[in-house]
């Protein structure tokens, strides 16, 4: 299943796509960790979200999560529309055209990007290298796209395969990933041989923009959406700690069951006031079960490790959003 052998004719293209898939996975993981805690960004982003009510209920419970479901009937159409067409059929002159119109929602993207980097400053070096790698990959992709122009149908198939691959690889152990990466590398080498470094430099800026959109792909958005739902549900049953002056913060680590119920929780950091800690604990327990994505894959992101719930009941949410 994994091996792209049946796709021989298009092995190069398939491998490139595989590469992209890996990329995507990696980015989903890496970026989500960095970008998740950012409140202000989400506030804007999810204003248009369906009001939190039946939580899971109003999420598309489609049967086939694999390919397109990545983009469910999720809310804001602009961000979702942007990345996809850009990724595949878009055949525009690879090098020259600074193709993708900045359109969409550049502010959000930029903000998310800025925030992410700010938070993960120490990882910046690594990221930069990563980006270069991505540039390379991107270049590969562009070439590939040019070639694929005439082969739209096959490409669809490829895409399917890629998705499967992506899913598989996400589930698989590192060994699998490494194997795939090796293949990708070989393919990349071949591609790179034909590629001039000058090209890379020329297009790097554009690539970066594109990559930022990839970050906001469906998976990330699902995660963000459910973080927001969890946040809102707990906030709605939270009581202020008026007896504690200032802005106390309590941190709990909470392990959820797949149903969203709190399996166990422990206090990671106290506010210094036992009653205030209790108020937060009660709010989390009252909010249980917490809303989780129906998509098991996405839900796993919330279950793999205990959630860290950081609560500042006395802080005015409006203030925070502004800041």
């Amino acid at each position: 299943m994994i091996a792209p052998s049946p796709l021989q004719g298009f092995s190069a293209g398939a491998l490139a796509l595989l590469m992209h898939g890996l990329f995507l996975t990696a980015l989903v993981f890496s970026v989500s960790w960095k970008a998740l805690p950012e409140m202000p960004v989400y506030a804007d982003l999810w204003n248009a979200l369906p009001p939190l009510a039946g939580s899971e209920a109003d999420v598309p419970s489609d049967a086939q999560p694999p390919v397109p479901p990545l983009m469910p009937e999720m809310p804001p159409p602009p961000p979702r529309a942007a990345p996809i067409p850009e990724l595949q059929p878009a055949p525009p002159p690879p090098r020259t055209a600074p193709a993708p119109p900045p359109a969409a929602k550049p502010d959000i993207v930029l903000e998310a990007d800025a925030k992410a980097r700010e938070e993960a400053r120490r990882k910046e070096e690594a990221q930069r290298q990563e980006q270069q790698a991505r540039q390379v990959a991107e270049e590969t992709r562009r070439r590939e796209e040019a070639r694929q122009l005439a082969q739209q149908h096959q490409q669809e198939e490829l895409r399917l395969a890629e998705e499967q691959l992506r899913q598989e690889s996400a589930r698989r152990a590192d060994a699998t990933r490494r194997e795939a990466l090796e293949q990708a590398r070989r393919e990349l080498d071949a591609e790179m041989a034909r590629q001039a470094q000058a090209d890379l430099a020329r297009e790097s800026a554009q690539i970066r923009r594109t990559q930022d959109r990839i970050v906001l792909s469906a998976r990330v958005r699902t995660i963000l959406e459910y973080q927001e739902r969890i946040r809102r549900k707990i906030q709605s049953v939270m009581t202020r700690c008026d007896q504690v002056p200032g802005n106390p913060e309590v941190v709990y680590k909470v392990q959820l069951l797949p149903t969203g119920e709190v399996l166990r929780m422990h206090m990671e950091r106290s506010s210094g006031n036992a009653i205030c800690d209790q108020l937060v604990e009660r709010a989390i327990l009252k909010a249980s079960p917490l809303p989780l994505p129906v998509d098991k894959e996405a839900a796993r992101d919330f279950l793999r490790e205990p959630l860290e719930l950081k609560s500042r009941p006395n802080e005015d949410p409006a203030t925070e959003a502004r800041g």
Partner: peptide
């Protein structure tokens, strides 16, 4: 994963 709950 960290989720911040601000306000009550």
């Amino acid at each position: 994963m960290t989720i911040e709950i601000v306000g009550a």
